[in-house]
Structures are given as structure tokens and as C-alpha cells.
Write a protein that binds this DNA or RNA. Structure first.
Lengths: 341, 341
DNA sequence: ATGAAAGCGCTAACAT
DNA sequence: ATGTTAGCGCTTTCAT
């Protein structure tokens, strides 16, 4: 039989209003009454009815703030689609959303935005941006004020966020290695391109790639790891220089970096049929080059689910008090070939 | 501004009770009143508030019936997990579930079960079973009685079901071809194993495989399509006979059939390192043989989402009147390698 | 055939 | 500090 605040009120000998105060941590209840109510609720395994809650909240919906990089980044569109999908499911359940698009090149704008949200009395925050000290501090501040924060797509480490929802970078590197030895074959020599090995997020993919290469027993040699610093030119120049001198290379893992630059190098050297390329995510230039069979595989991270799940987790936390299943929620790491599209 | 039945009632000059009768197709309303209410609702784009609806339904939850094959089939556990997950989200929203496990070897049990559900006054049905005339008729009967039916995992064709939610078999065949030419290489010769080419569901994968092989420009030759009739022995014997005589084969696509039998043949002929195997789904024997690198890829169909989405679609249809996005809802076709696990 | 009113579980404004 | 009450939008019983 389901337990309601009415039941609890009777057993505790108080009114429903008081039970509501206790259960929602509102002030103005004597400690002993509060404890009595709390212990009864726990014993009865009380769980709030979300439909009733939503209906009561109807007029003043609970507002969540969403902070992410500017919309032009195509990748984030899929995340937004996921958020919209969750919003649609929850639209009658008493929530409203507010978006803020801030730079992910410098942190102060994002930090300020978090602060503004907190001061405006928001109930929860979804955040995707830099892993930076200013932001870390603002997140901690929000959490200290009782406002849960979920990071998505790209984590902010060592802070009090409720959880992170995104991809497992290390695993995506391992998968890249698995695919590479399958297509490039035993004893092949390959090269990997990353952004900056000093960034943990960039290094994780390379670590996964190298670890799995070593474990696999396929004797796949990683001849070089090129740092592109996320610049087209670095990718182009360094890759071009290296491949020109190493004709034995039969695979490129584009962990991070400009895939168009990579493709251009390969074509200019006439290596389309000798080199296998594996990259990440689904961008227009990647789709195009998969269709023409110059890119073999791309590894994806399910951005739709990242958006969808982030909102759901926040909602669940606020409305039912349930903590997420884990502090790190990884979305499935998928493999895509041209036939998948 | 959101529209409620109260608004409609005022504009139509009737009571909220009458509006409710109209909107839920209950009888006892004069045709002209009904039309008036209906047109006002349409003009105002009325959408019911599901929280309110759920709360009102609280005592007599809407019951959905679920018919699927016996639980021992591991594959269906993931589907059930998906259903449970959706159920959990909807648990306060006025639904209850009833499961029936019936044979998928013969159709009369399933047909009878549908009929029982209909007679018991159920509100909607999720069905997975044979594509058979008896079942088709019972589904049509249910729908005629106003009970929506969603088929999942395996479709029942040419009937009045609301929609089918499951995998795109043809596409999974195309993906298998794409993977195969990547690992087996240009000009390779491969063999495919299916169940029974007379079954549309079995044939679809083979069609996809062959179509893509032809299109790809890789000159991959499909040397044989073996029918296993879903028997271990047929798979073992036919494959063994064929491979013994054709040492040039470098790939096996197990579209349907016993993967353990296939692995055994390959091992007994000592071909582990010369033949690439691609199969479907994640079964214990497949996982085991992927780990030991004898199976290269397995193609998966996201059973969790199949279960989750089926229930959600049924719920949406009943509670908000929304039709599913499409009559055929395909879940993502994924690619899994040992590194993905 | 239609209206009026109670009630689903919870919140919040108002009393005390 | 605590109780009382109205109300969220919809369904359903009971009148008429």
C-alpha cells in the first residue's frame, strides 16, 4: 500500500502541513517533531507522488538552468535534442528551463553565469564547459547553497557536482585500437593525433589506445603521437611531414584534431587506399569522407542521451530525492561506419 | 497560456463533466454539444495535463498487458530491463503492468492471451511473438475494440497495430557487409549463414548483406548462403562441409544460426586466424569468443530501448492521445567489438 | 443528457 | 511552531 503524507501526519500526530515542512526541509519545525516525522517516513518507506507534486507546483514551476557553449557547434545540437525530448516528457510535471550560451574558451563568463543563476533562485543547474578553478569554485558555491549541479559532455573535476554524464574517453581510445588492428592487421605501424597531452581529456583517449594496443597481442606499433593543439595547421604540417618520411604507416587514429586536415594530407600523398583512418564524432566532413570510404570508422558518444539523461537525473533528484546511480555516468561508446548512416 | 477543461467548459457553456465525457469519448452527450466542445478544444489546441490525469486515475490505474516469449531467453531480459525502467518513471502516473509469457513456437497460446486481455478490459497491449494469421486476427480484433497494440522486437505484419518497435534487419545486413569487406579485404570470398530464406525476417538481413556487398565496389564475393533452419546440426554440418572444400573463404556472416556451432567448425578446421566472423546480438558464447578474438564483430539492436520505448509509446498514446512518430520505429543498430564490453 | 461536487497527494497562503 | 484550507486539472459518482 502506498504511503502518503496524510498517513505520516496521523501517525506522528501532526498536521499534513508540518509533514510537508519536514519532508522538504523547510524551517519552522521543532527538532523533536522533525525527527519523529522523519523516522516514521523512513520506516514506512515514504516516496512522494510525483504527479501530485507536479500538480501542486503547477503555478510556480521548478526552474532549471542550462549552461553550454554557443549553439553553432553542431555537436551540441544533438545534446539539445536530447534535452528537449526529456523536457517534453516532463512538461506537465512542473519544470521550466532556461538556457545560457557561454564561451568555452575562457572561464569567467561561465563562472558569472552560474553565480547569476544561483542568485536568481534557480533549483538546479546543468553545466558543460571548461574544467577550471573559477568554475569549480562557483559550482561548489552553488552546491553549498543547496543547488545541485550536473556536468555533461565535458566534466568539471574535483568539485561538488552531483554527477557527470558523458563519454568514457579512455574506453573510446581502447575501441579505436581494437578497430585499428582489425583493419590495419597484425604488425602494422600506425600514428595517433591528439590535441594536447597535458590535458587529461586528450590524454585519456591516447592512453586507452596505447594500453589496448599493448594488451591485444597484435604487435601494432604506435610509431608517433602527434600533438595538434587543436589547430588545422599543426595537424596538417606535422602529419604531412611524418607520413612523407614513413611510408610504412597504415593507420591514423585522429583522437582529437582536424579531420579535414588529416584527409587532405592523406589525399595529397596519394595514400587513400593504403591508410586506414579512425576518428570521433559525426561531423559533416567526417560523414562525407566516410561515404567516399576514406575514413573507415568513427567513434561516437551518444550526445542525445547525454542531454536527455542530464535533465532526467536533475529532475529525479529534485522531485524524488533520488541520487544518480553513479557519480560518473558514461553514455555508450558506439562505432559507426558509412553503412550505419 | 495553457488550456484546461475548465476554459473549454466555460466557452462551450457546459460543465466540466461534459467536457470530460466528450474528450474521452464517453457516451451520453448530444451530438451537437459534442461537436461544439470538440471544435473549441481543437481551436484552443487543448492538451490534457498528464499530472492531473495521473492523480485522478490514482485509484484505478490504467493497466497494460505485455505478451512475450518465456523469460529464459537472455535477450529478453534486456528488453524487460527497459520496460522496468519506463515503468519506474511512470509509476506515479497511473499505470500498472501485467506480464504473460507465451510460446513463440506456436501461435494459439499467444492468440488466446490477447483475447483474454481484451475481455479483461485492459487498456493497451505490448506484443512480441510470431507473425501469424491467428495472431494478426486477434490483434485486429483488439484494435477494433479500441485497445492499441504495439509490437516489439519482432513484428506482426499486415495488422492494425499502432506501431512496431525493433531493429532494422535489412540495415544490420548492410552493416555486416561493411564490416566484412573492411576486415576481409578487397576481392575476398565469404559465406553467409541464415535460418530460412522463406522467412522475411531472415531474408532481410541477407538481402542487406548482399545489396551492400554489390554496391560497395569492393568485389566481395558471397560464395554461399547456407540455411541452418535454426538447428545446431545444420549449421555445423553444412558449414563444415562447405569450408572444407573452399579454403579460400575468409569470412563468415552468421546472420542467423548457432554461433557456437560456427566457432566449433572454424576451430576444428584450424582456421581461427584466417577467417573473420561477424554475428548478431550479445550472448554468452559470443562474448566468450569475442574475448578470444575469434569473433570480430557482433551487431546489436539495443533491446533495452525496445522495451523502454514500447511502453512509453503506449503510455503517450493513451494519456495524451499522441500517435507514435512513425509506424515503424527502428532502434539504433550498433557495432560491438571486444573492446566495447 | 447534463450539472454539481468530492477527491486524487501535495504545496502554500493564511490563521492561530 | 503548527494547524487549516484552498487549489492544481482531471475523473467519477451522485443528482437532476
Amino acid at each position: 500500500m502506498k504511503v502518503t503524507i496524510k498517513n505520516i501526519a496521523q501517525l506522528a500526530g501532526v498536521s499534513r502541513g508540518t509533514v510537508d515542512r519536514v519532508l522538504n526541509n523547510r524551517k519552522g519545525v521543532k527538532p523533536d517533531v522533525r525527527n519523529r516525522v522523519l523516522s516514521i517516513a523512513a520506516k514506512l518507506k515514504y516516496e512522494p507522488n510525483i504527479a501530485a507534486k507536479a500538480l501542486a507546483y503547477n503555478n510556480r514551476p521548478v526552474k532549471f538552468g542550462i549552461i553550454m557553449p554557443p549553439r553553432e557547434i553542431a555537436f551540441f545540437n544533438e545534446i539539445k535534442n536530447g534535452i528537449h525530448s526529456a523536457e517534453n516528457e516532463l512538461k506537465d510535471l512542473g519544470i521550466s528551463l532556461e538556457y545560457r550560451y557561454v564561451s568555452n574558451q575562457e572561464s569567467s563568463e561561465a563562472a558569472t553565469t552560474i553565480d547569476e543563476f544561483v542568485k536568481s533562485g534557480i533549483s538546479g543547474i546543468m553545466f558543460s564547459g571548461m574544467d577550471d578553478i573559477k568554475i569549480r569554485n562557483q559550482i561548489d558555491n552553488a552546491v553549498d547553497e543547496g543547488i545541485p549541479v550536473v556536468t555533461f559532455n565535458s566534466d568539471v573535476t574535483r568539485c561538488k557536482r552531483l554527477c557527470f554524464i558523458g563519454q568514457d574517453l579512455y574506453k573510446s581510445g581502447r575501441i579505436a585500437a581494437g578497430l585499428m588492428y582489425r583493419v590495419a592487421g597484425r604488425n602494422s605501424k600506425v600514428v595517433a593525433v591528439t590535441g594536447n597531452l597535458e590535458f587529461q581529456a586528450h590524454k585519456a583517449r591516447i592512453d586507452g589506445f596505447m594500453d589496448r594496443a599493448a594488451e591485444s597481442g597484435q604487435n601494432m606499433i604506435i610509431a608517433n603521437v602527434i600533438e595538434s593543439f587543436d589547430r588545422y595547421e599543426d595537424t596538417y604540417n606535422k602529419l604531412s611531414a611524418f607520413l612523407s618520411e614513413h611510408s610504412e604507416i597504415s593507420g591514423i587514429y585522429m583522437a582529437t584534431g582536424d579531420v579535414a586536415a588529416c584527409v587532405k594530407v592523406v589525399k595529397s600523398l596519394g595514400l587513400e587506399h593504403n591508410i586506414h583512418i579512425i576518428c570521433n564524432d559525426i561531423l559533416p566532413e567526417i560523414v562525407e569522407n566516410m561515404k567516399s570510404q576514406i575514413i573507415d570508422f568513427t567513434i561516437v558518444q551518444n550526445p542525445f542521451i547525454q542531454g536527455y539523461k542530464s535533465l532526467k537525473v536533475l529532475y529525479e533528484y529534485i522531485f524524488t530525492g533520488k541520487n544518480p546511480e553513479s557519480e560518473l555516468i558514461y553514455t555508450d561508446t558506439g562505432i559507426v561506419i558509412t553503412e550505419s548512416l
